[in-house]
Design a protein around this nucleic acid. Sequence first.
DNA 1: GGCAGCCGTTCAATATACTGAACGGCGTTC
DNA 2: GAACGCCGTTCAGTATATTGAACGGCTGCC
Lengths: 260, 260
Amino acid sequence: MASESAHVELDGFRPVKSADRTLDVLEALAGGPCTLSELSRRLNVPKSSLHGLLRTLTTRGWLQTAGGDTRFRLGLRAVRVATAFVDSDEVVARAAPVLDRLAGQTGETVQQGRLDGDDVIYLAKRDSPHPVRLISTIGSRLPAHATALGKALLAARDDETVRALLRFPLAGLTAQTHTEWASLAADLAVVRRRGYAIDDCEATDGLRCFAVTIPGGETTDAVSISVPTFRLSESRETELVAALLDAQAELGRSPLHRTR
Amino acid sequence: MASESAHVELDGFRPVKSADRTLDVLEALAGGPCTLSELSRRLNVPKSSLHGLLRTLTTRGWLQTAGGDTRFRLGLRAVRVATAFVDSDEVVARAAPVLDRLAGQTGETVQQGRLDGDDVIYLAKRDSPHPVRLISTIGSRLPAHATALGKALLAARDDETVRALLRFPLAGLTAQTHTEWASLAADLAVVRRRGYAIDDCEATDGLRCFAVTIPGGETTDAVSISVPTFRLSESRETELVAALLDAQAELGRSPLHRTR
DNA sequence: GGCAGCCGTTCAATATACTGAACGGCGTTC
DNA sequence: GAACGCCGTTCAGTATATTGAACGGCTGCC
């Protein structure tokens, strides 16, 4: 679903080349610093074309070349844009107080994610006991089928839709990850009946997560609690799930419709 | 320093138009959603030209049009880029454990900022006691002359450099903000002697901040502690400043030079 | 009902950016 | 020390994006 180089459009629509490439560059550099020539090879763009582009981006502060290094990296101006997205997002804003409460109440890591194609993108995080790290995970992606957040969101769609969304065989992140449609479909059926999703070491070994969707409209977002298995007992799990379902109910009571 | 429309370069270098405009669009939309026609007016770009651009950005997931709304807003793909910058930044990585400790030890809000022109950009934050809000402040800018972070960084440069950096009269955010060179210069002289900067309600009423630079290389970054004045006593202030100076010393012991 | 304002969209002519090859600099290798 | 690999940079010709005017849809206002 999320192709890295979707340069060709079918509708007879031709993307603006330089704009398209600008995004290519930014996305490529999001993976780490890179020289002009290396970018040229990786993106299949002539060096001379990149030259102008990179200079443009650099003069605007979106890229920078640190000291004597010839490698380009993202610049300060780029930071603003992402935070602006998160700041202005209605669902993130609506969920914020609930995430706060949930994190404070459980003392566990709480996250909010959104379905984008077959990936889940992390948009907010509370990491209550330990002092909070960087934004780090925010903006990062994981395959939906391998996470509690993702499975909660997939379960909100019918099987046909889900199946069309995914590409098989599914990527296996741990030994527990669903890789075939049959096992995933069975899991999703359980999620629908049960009302919440469980990721039992399917994304990260030793980590179990629970997730519910955020009610309202398209059901694009979900909230999860992640707990190391060693810290988890049966009673503790019941407790956490109850807190999560409470949070979902609370989210359901807040205004559903786009206000502006 | 930070001009919104620096479309003309003097070096005989002409920026790539579409790339330049792509950034214009992204930066404009960072301020909030906007229709095509409105963008056209604000950026002085023909609607027809914007049309292609916006379609390109939308196809790539960098922009989105929510539901029936004709307004464009930032899309999910944009988020990744900013977080990648912060993640890959050496100084942020180096400072992270120190910020953690400082926040845990003082129980106050700790921030890291970088000088960009005459602004300070917030790159990291710890908000220990209260559950952590959005990334919110990260990526946001404030005038350097009005913040403790900014004054610490300005004080690390000589008067001549500072004066060339700023444009007078300086923007006044509160009644306490320095607006003239004389008073700012006097303050910076004190900062240099004292070793740390104080912002006494100069950016926000009722908030006092203390800041020290992060040693190493260009001195681009600083760390601050922010405290509501009502919670501040003389002894508490001494305590906080001591903790801040400790943190600075610790930062000075970590490797200064770019490792790669 | 019709007019005026907004919106996004299309199209052919023109202005412009892209290209590939050649260049100069620098460090390594033989 | 010469030949190579890497790097970023320049330039004239061609491929391509940009432009302004015109279009169709929509809403609200007389």
